[in-house]
């Protein structure tokens, strides 16, 4: 008995210190990863704050060379840049609202069983198939034009209004929710709509918050639809604008006249400044939404 006890104590102590060792290496490893992830970002910051000739010569590492705020001043003077920020903001707000509304109301019925929703499997496949097969640029363009969306902000929102991947994620989350809650609410006399709004949605906040992050980032970064569907370059969202600023000119087969048209900003300090300013709003979305993840803890206790 005594021996067993001692051994147990020893084990505990050993476990205890093993836990600390684990913690140490765990934090070391994750910290290393974090550093790896931050370095390029710091490089971008340093370049954006450097003198442009130093940047072009590739002399800038992690610290600005010949500190200069010129690029930021210049970026903020660029009407197109500011305009495109505004366009992006509008697009994200409208787009995420539409996407989330549709994601939620589509995922909820699909999370029911076949008994509750006849044809559920059919509907599910109806949506999933669109994830796998697309018609290509031209027909999509034609449809967008025929429905009168061309050159409006809706051309960048409605064609992808139902993000199927997110619907599938959310419907799986809904499925996991404890049935008892719904049942007890029904017994309490709550209406369906009320149950959906007051119970289902609040319980799903961690998942919904995650999807909002995905969706916001998606809208903020998408440049292609802006380039294809918008006729006025003044309407371009930031991503389209930056894409055009940053794309590497392809000099294959290019004749002089075209080189002339394409020769453009390769001014790295300016583009890096614009990237940073452009990325800031979106980077801030995540920490803001993180608190919903913590709130989600409630769910666990309910399940238990």
């Amino acid at each position: 008995m005594e021996e067993n006890k001692r051994e147990f104590k020893l084990m505990r102590r050993r476990g205890f210190s093993a836990e600390y060792i684990f913690d140490f290496f765990n934090i070391l490893f994750l910290g290393f990863l974090a550093v790896c992830c931050v370095l390029p970002f710091i490089n971008v910051i340093a370049v954006s704050l450097s003198d442009s000739s130093a940047a072009t010569a590739g002399m800038v590492g992690l610290w600005p060379v010949k500190f200069s705020l010129d690029s930021y001043m210049f970026a903020f003077q660029k009407v197109r840049f500011l305009l495109s920020m505004k366009n992006s903001a509008i697009r994200v707000i409208l787009g995420v609202a539409v996407n989330m509304a549709l994601t939620i109301i589509t995922a909820y019925p699909l999370s029911k069983t076949v008994k509750e929703l006849k044809g559920r499997t059919f509907f599910a496949w109806f949506f999933v198939i669109t994830m796998l097969i697309g018609g290509g640029t031209i027909p999509t363009y034609l449809i967008v034009m025929w429905t009168g969306l061309r050159n409006t902000v809706w051309s960048m929102i409605l064609p992808g209004a139902v993000p199927v991947y997110n619907v599938v994620i959310l419907l799986n989350f809904f499925k996991q929710l404890p049935k008892e809650l719904e049942e007890s609410a029904v017994i309490d006399g709550a209406g369906d709509f009320r149950i959906f709004l007051r119970i289902i949605i609040p319980l799903s906040m961690p998942c919904i918050a995650t999807l909002i992050v995905f969706q916001t980032v998606g809208h903020w970064n998408d440049w292609f639809s802006g380039m294809i569907y918008l006729d006025n370059i003044e309407k371009y969202p930031l991503a389209t604008y930056l894409h055009n600023v940053l794309q590497r000119p392809n000099f294959d087969n290019m004749e002089l006249q075209e080189i002339q048209r394409v020769m453009k900003i390769s001014n790295r300090t300016l583009s890096d400044a614009q990237i940073l300013i452009g990325a800031l709003p979106i980077i801030m979305v995540y920490p803001f939404l993180q608190r919903f993840f913590v709130k989600g803890m409630v769910l666990g206790s309910l399940k238990g």
Binding site: L102, P109, E116, L117, F126, G134, G136, I143, A161, F193
Partner: peptide
């Protein structure tokens, strides 16, 4: 039931137009 079907309608319409429509391509 009906409420559930009604919820699917907007998504189905948009998907038909903008995802199935282009399949003609």
């Amino acid at each position: 039931h009906w409420g559930l079907y009604a919820m699917l309608v907007p998504g189905i319409i948009l998907t038909l137009i903008y995802s199935y429509g282009p399949l003609m391509g």
